Amino acid sequence: MTVAEWCVFAALMLYLLTIGSVKWIGFRRFDNSRPRDPAFYDDPIRARALGAHQNGIETFPFFAFAVLLAEFRGGPQRLVDELAVLFVIVRIAYVFTYVGDRPTLRSILWSLGFAINLAIFLMPAIRGFWPV
């Protein structure tokens, strides 16, 4: 498996751990028979963790598809790997800024992550112009 493919797995684990850690920390208040109980998410940190988790679910398909498309269509593997690692780093920072209630920085990181995704996605179309 390539580094970029491992990054797809890391992105999946990141959005699962984002909500899993909050449920684990609040285990006394979390009722697994009602996992979507809105009362559990009344706490602001839990609510922001849920938002970060949901955003991770929303961004994951595009990232996974972009990586696989770039690899299958002959994008420069080293560049695909580097951008995928950068995407995961940006997503980790994004989760911390979301949970830490830093909305401006969070929006900047979301935009940067989207730009990285777009670069990976478009790589096969413009591979002749890359100096790699």
Rank of each mutant, 00 (worst) to 15 (best):
G113I: 03
L122F: 12
E58R: 04
L50M: 14
Q54T: 01
L50R: 07
I126R: 01
V90F: 06
P103T: 04
A84L: 03
D42E: 15
R102K: 13
I89Q: 09
L118R: 05
L69M: 07
R127Y: 06
L50H: 05
V88K: 04
F121H: 06
F96T: 06
D37T: 01
A84I: 00
E82Y: 09
G51S: 15
F121Y: 13
S107E: 10
P124S: 08
T59R: 05
I57Y: 06
A64D: 11
V88I: 12
I116S: 12
R46E: 14
D43I: 00
Q54K: 01
L86Y: 04
T59I: 12
G74H: 03
V80N: 07
I57R: 01
L69N: 07
I92L: 15
D81K: 01
Y41V: 00
P44E: 06
I126Q: 12
A66H: 01
I57D: 09
A115I: 01
H53F: 04
L69F: 09
A64F: 09
L83P: 10
R78P: 09
A47I: 04
P76K: 01
M123I: 00
A125Q: 13
E82V: 08
G75T: 02
F96A: 15
S111R: 03
F121W: 15
R127I: 04
D37N: 07
S107C: 10
G75Q: 00
R127E: 11
V85G: 12
D101F: 07
D81W: 00
S111F: 09
L118S: 12
E58H: 04
S107N: 13
L105E: 07
I116D: 13
P76E: 11
A125M: 13
F87G: 09
P38W: 08
D37V: 03
D42C: 11
P38C: 12
V80Y: 03
I126E: 14
P76I: 00
F114A: 09
L109P: 07
P38L: 04
L118A: 14
E58W: 01
A70I: 03
I57N: 10
L105I: 05
S111I: 01
A64V: 04
M123D: 05
F62E: 08
R127G: 15
R102M: 10
I57A: 13
V90I: 07
V80D: 10
I57F: 12
S107D: 13
R46K: 13
A115M: 03
G74Q: 00
E71R: 03
